[in-house]
């Protein structure tokens, strides 16, 4: 009798789990899977979108994977995915190939913008840096180790006036984009930077370190650090990283993030892409530190949404 009593809850639990699983399992007919693959820069945002979309539309599951923009577009050409994510626009030969394979034209959707901001400690007197100065600080061919090499800057509270470079791990999309856009496509970052794991970490480090300089997605910038304006061409204007400048693309370290489909999107895929243009998805864009696409949103709208999303959970 004692033994039986002991076994009972376990048996009950096993049965419960067994039947519970049967109950949860859905048949494939009433369940559509959208395959979404590509850019690692976009993958975090795409995942958050997919999760949130799953909550409002239980008939669709969106499977998101990274691997890089090229991987995503290659999969689209082979018709293995419904949506390809890319942080660069599709090349002409790629879209031709896709048309040959499927007979459909590739459709492009600009889903968000990605802008990087260069930032320093608030005590740093610099207001802006030029592209050459950035390459001198971060690039493997540069030799700027001391703030005095940048227009004789003296940073108060910074011992020896040494430049502390705060970078990211090489798997980060932010790192890759910064490297390719600012330093050059066939270049390397200089070793000896502090390679951190996340945007939040680099901000935390720079706000505590007077000597430091870092870069991050514009959405992460806060009041405890100083974002610098960037001069792209020698003698050109120094453009501050504001939402306006990013959305009208005058800020030089801005790029568009794309989603591609074969032909015009149809059915559930179309619904999903429509939802991405909508207000809920755009709030997520802002939350994740990206910038909404100017094709669908005005600067005023975005500022209003930004105020709304402050302090909200994802």
């Amino acid at each position: 009798m004692k033994k039986f009593l002991f076994l009972n809850p376990i048996v009950f639990l096993m049965f419960f789990l067994l039947f519970g699983c049967f109950g949860l399992k859905k048949s494939p007919e009433d369940f559509l899977i959208i395959q979404n693959k590509g850019s690692d820069t976009l993958v975090n945002l795409a995942q958050v979108w997919a999760e949130n979309y799953g909550r409002i539309n239980s008939k669709v599951a969106i499977s998101v994977s990274g691997g890089g923009s090229g991987t995503g577009i290659a999969a689209l050409i082979n018709n293995q995915v419904d949506i390809a994510n890319s942080s660069r626009s599709i090349k002409e030969e790629e879209s031709k190939k896709a048309e040959q394979n499927s007979g459909k034209k590739v459709t492009e959707y600009v889903v968000a913008l990605d802008a990087l901001s260069v930032f320093v400690h608030p005590s740093n007197p610099l207001q802006g840096l030029s592209r050459t100065e950035l390459a001198c600080i971060f690039g493997s061919e540069g030799n700027c180790d001391n703030w005095s090499q940048i227009r004789n800057t003296v940073v108060p509270g910074c011992k020896n006036n040494k430049i502390i470079r705060v970078s990211r791990m090489s798997n980060s999309g932010t790192y890759q984009y910064f490297l390719e856009r600012v330093i050059g496509k066939k270049k390397d970052m200089r070793l000896g930077s502090m390679d951190l794991n996340g945007s939040k970490e680099s901000i935390d480090l720079v706000q505590n370190t007077p000597c430091a300089i870092g870069y991050t997605g514009m959405g992460y910038i806060n009041d405890h650090i100083k974002a610098l304006c960037v001069t792209w061409d020698e003698g050109g204007p120094c453009i501050p990283p504001t939402l306006e400048n990013a959305m009208n693309k005058t800020y030089p370290i801005t790029r568009e993030l794309f989603m591609y489909t074969l032909g015009e999107a149809e059915g559930e895929v179309k619904k999903y892409l429509e939802w991405i243009k909508g207000i809920d998805a755009t709030k997520l864009v802002i939350k994740m530190g990206y910038i909404p696409s100017p094709a669908y949103w005005s600067i005023e709208d975005v500022n209003r949404l930004k105020a709304q999303t402050q302090g909200q959970k994802l």
Partner: peptide, 19 residues
């Protein structure tokens, strides 16, 4: 290390990096 030692090294020992 990050929350206690890092600010201590920067603010008290005045070294450029705390980590």
């Amino acid at each position: 290390a990050v929350m206690v030692m890092n600010p201590f090294i920067i603010n008290v020992l005045h070294e450029p990096v705390g980590l």
